[in-house]
Design a protein around this nucleic acid. Structure first.
Length: 277
DNA sequence: AAGCTTTCCTGAACGC
DNA sequence: TGCGTTCAGGAAAGCT
């Protein structure tokens, strides 16, 4: 499931391939794949491709933006063979040199929005701080967190607060911070918030370095897998790599949470005064 | 406001 | 063997 590092990997690999190409058309193979599609005869030459949260944004010289969200199972596979196909194709982005990007998506939650560059896109406008930006500061999170009593796990998944985190990385970040996923967000102190910031940046950077995490569906542009799954410490693990105790598993916000009851502070007990790591 | 729940979807894994 | 059930989860809508 593509989160920030997987989306960033796709951007990094697509940039040198598609910038400057002429995007002739986008073919839709399944309804509701293309949103806001207007009657555009020519989409234009690709100017930029960048990421905001988990969204891929492609702009063209025809002052258009193509916004792609892969959700859980979406992939963008580049091929120079116009007749290439895949098992769950939903759309093709076809270039004038007969190469194309295949948008493949088993569970069909992904979407491609085509809109004028100057059109406000609500789902982008509501996004919170980018983890690699200066906005992602202790003061910012402190102001956001103090109003929230929901579990920290849920709040880290909230894209309007931090943009780009998903279930896997939130599990890993909280384990690295030794914070129990169920603690009320407004109970965290500034030191813990600082740990969330530094571990988020550290883990995301390392995940990008290894081209993301392939658990089941995520694939890179060349259909290869990422490698960060080899560095996961808590997600889908059965034994804590730190203390050896069994990993606990609960459900939060409809998603599986993995944590170590021993290493990540129990919300029902007072926080330890000394860091036990 | 914030925080719930529900909905969307398909394939793999599981249970009887 | 085979059929039915459960699970995986990002984001938005609807409701309290």
């Amino acid at each position: 499931m593509p989160e920030l590092p997987e989306v960033q990997t796709i951007i990094n690999e697509l940039s040198p391939i598609i910038i400057g190409k002429n995007l002739v058309k986008i073919e839709e193979f399944r309804e509701n794949t293309l949103i806001n599609q207007q009657k555009i005869s020519y989409l234009g030459q690709i100017n930029t491709i960048f990421r905001r949260g988990k969204y891929i944004i492609i702009t063209t010289d025809q002052k258009l933006q193509i916004i792609i969200h892969l959700r859980m199972t979406g992939k963008l596979i580049y091929t120079e063979n116009l007749t290439s196909s895949s098992s769950h194709m939903r759309a093709h982005l076809i270039f004038s040199d007969h190469s194309k990007l295949i948008f493949d998506d088993v569970r069909t939650f992904g979407q491609i929005t085509i809109a004028p560059l100057n059109q406000q896109i609500k789902s982008l406008d509501i996004l919170g701080a980018e983890p690699f930006s200066n906005d992602f500061s202790t003061e910012y999170l402190w102001q956001k967190f103090r109003k929230r009593k929901a579990p920290i796990k849920n709040i880290l998944l909230n894209q309007t607060i931090i943009a780009g985190l998903g279930n896997i990385y939130v599990n890993e970040i909280l384990f690295a911070c030794q914070i129990h996923p169920a603690v009320p967000t407004n109970s965290l102190n500034k030191k813990q918030i600082g740990a969330i910031i530094s571990n988020t940046i550290k883990i995301l950077k390392k995940a990008i370095k290894y081209n993301g995490t392939t658990i089941s569906d995520y694939k890179r542009v060349d259909n290869k897998s990422g490698k960060f799954q080899n560095f996961l410490k808590i997600y889908q693990k059965t034994e804590c790599p730190k203390c050896g105790n069994p990993v606990s598993r609960i459900k939060q916000a409809g998603r599986s949470t993995f944590f170590c009851y021993s290493c990540q502070n129990n919300p029902h007990k007072p926080l330890k005064s000394k860091n036990n790591g």
